[in-house]
Design a protein around this nucleic acid. Sequence first.
DNA 1: GTTAGTGCAAACCTTTTGCAGCTCT
DNA 2: AGAGCTGCAAAAGGTTTGCACTAAC
Lengths: 173, 173
Amino acid sequence: MALDSIEGSLKERGVRLTRQRQILLELIDKTGEHLDAERLYQLAKERDPKLNRVTVYRTLKMLKSSGLVDELDLMHFTGDQHFYETRLKQEHAHMVCLRCGRVEEFFGEPLQRLRKQIESHFGFQILVARTEIGGYCAHCQTLRLREVEELRSQVEASPVGAPLPPAKRARRA
Amino acid sequence: MALDSIEGSLKERGVRLTRQRQILLELIDKTGEHLDAERLYQLAKERDPKLNRVTVYRTLKMLKSSGLVDELDLMHFTGDQHFYETRLKQEHAHMVCLRCGRVEEFFGEPLQRLRKQIESHFGFQILVARTEIGGYCAHCQTLRLREVEELRSQVEASPVGAPLPPAKRARRA
DNA sequence: GTTAGTGCAAACCTTTTGCAGCTCT
DNA sequence: AGAGCTGCAAAAGGTTTGCACTAAC
């Protein structure tokens, strides 16, 4: 199991497996989503109401600098938080739909190719690699078109020019 | 000249070319570095001491959502700011040395390949793509080795185990 | 028993917002 | 003239730090 390999890696280096860390590790490992610090904190609090937000940040930082998790931004679609995932899968790119927010993963040879070229051309020793792509998913492309049409006709209908709905930043609940 | 094409694009869409924006555009275009908002603000203030930090943020946001500049994180090597570059060059990846902070750019076919595969396999309409890679540049790899050696011998020399120098976050002056 | 790790409160950095007044076109 | 833009002050969002206490090994 994935959790075991991470816990093993920590134990070897003399990192203590506290109750809090076990909770956080399990959540990161088992949850099928890309969690940010706040969401992880909320989930962790369900299991241990005393667990502090700061511990979440410290744990994530530790896991990141140990190379056990990767940090993502997901194109800052929802804000400026960072998202985390364990380094278990093969390297992959993240595609974020800028309309619905859905995140898809792309595995495939261009990524390995890129890695190899960079290592050989530059003699660069890669520790982390991150590819994030923003755009419209197949489903949203058509919806998007319709929306743009609607806006256009609204603008033409109103003499002054109707203001576009402001693209507000997603706020936390 | 690059500036012209950006200014043209803005003018077409009825965006005003204020004195402040001209200053900022010229700095982004002419400066050969990846600037973050604060640095851009400092540079802009030299030309117009009244220019406000908020205007920098608003201008960057506008340029980004117009697709005229790209936003980078450079692996958060120096902190959580964002860096900006005009979209004039061909698509490229950024390689950040996690020791010296140097940033190199990689152009090359794997990037185009990646783009095409994602578009064809998923029917995904790409608007922005970002590849950032962290590691050690050729030069720092040897230096890094030496540093690790030194640390090791220090640890062996001291009975308690000397604490490693903490990797503090880079603070602003 | 030590030392690493935790919780709490407070700070910090980066970015956004509301609003009154200024300025491009 | 008038919408669009700016500056200012204040706030927000996300993350880190200092310190005293606690718990893992």
